[in-house]
Simulated assay, not measured.
Amino acid sequence: MENQWTSGLCSCMEDGKTVCLTCFCPCVAFGRIANIADEGNHGCGECGIFYGLICCVVGLPCLFSCTYRTKIRRKFGLPESPASDCITHCFCESCALCQEYRELKNRGLDPSIGWNEHMQRATSPPMGQYMKS
Rank of each mutant, 00 (worst) to 15 (best):
A122S: 09
L9D: 05
F30K: 12
V58S: 02
C27I: 10
G48S: 00
M119Y: 02
W115A: 00
S94H: 10
D38H: 01
W115E: 05
G128F: 14
C56W: 13
T67Q: 01
N3H: 11
Y101M: 13
W5K: 05
T22A: 12
S124L: 03
N41W: 05
S94R: 05
P82S: 12
C20K: 15
K71L: 12
A29F: 10
L109R: 06
L21P: 03
D15Q: 08
E100I: 09
C55K: 15
Y51K: 10
N41S: 06
Q129R: 06
F24M: 07
C20V: 14
A83I: 03
Q4Y: 09
C56D: 11
D110W: 08
E103R: 08
E93S: 13
A122I: 02
I87M: 13
G108N: 10
G16V: 12
M13Y: 14
C56M: 13
C66F: 08
S112N: 05
T6P: 07
T88K: 07
K132F: 00
V57G: 00
E80T: 11
S11R: 14
C90Y: 11
P26I: 06
K17S: 02
C86F: 06
T6F: 13
E103L: 08
V19G: 04
G16W: 15
E117V: 06
F30Y: 14
C20R: 15
S81M: 00
G114S: 00
Q4H: 10
N3M: 11
E14R: 13
D85N: 14
C95W: 01
E14A: 04
P111M: 09
L97T: 07
S124A: 10
H89G: 09
Q99T: 01
S94E: 03
L78R: 11
N3E: 12
P79V: 03
L60E: 01
C20I: 15
G45A: 08
M127S: 12
M127T: 06
A29Q: 02
C10Y: 15
I49C: 07
C86G: 00
C55Y: 11
K17A: 00
A122C: 01
S11E: 11
D85Q: 10
T88P: 04
M131L: 13
C10N: 15
S11V: 01
Q99A: 06
R107E: 09
S11Q: 09
C62S: 08
G59V: 13
C10G: 09
C66I: 03
S7Q: 05
A96V: 01
C27Y: 14
S84I: 01
Y51H: 08
F30L: 10
P125S: 11
S7C: 02
E46L: 10
V58Q: 14
C55W: 14
C62D: 05
W115V: 06
K71W: 03
S84V: 01
E14G: 00
K17M: 10
G16F: 15
K75G: 00
L53I: 15
R102M: 11
C56F: 15
F76S: 08
Q99D: 05
H89D: 07
Q120E: 02
E93P: 06
L97W: 10
T6C: 05
R73Y: 05
F64M: 07
I36K: 01
P125F: 04
S94W: 00
L109Q: 08
P82A: 09
L97E: 05
G128V: 07
R69L: 06
C44A: 01
C56Y: 13
F64L: 10
R74S: 12
G59H: 10
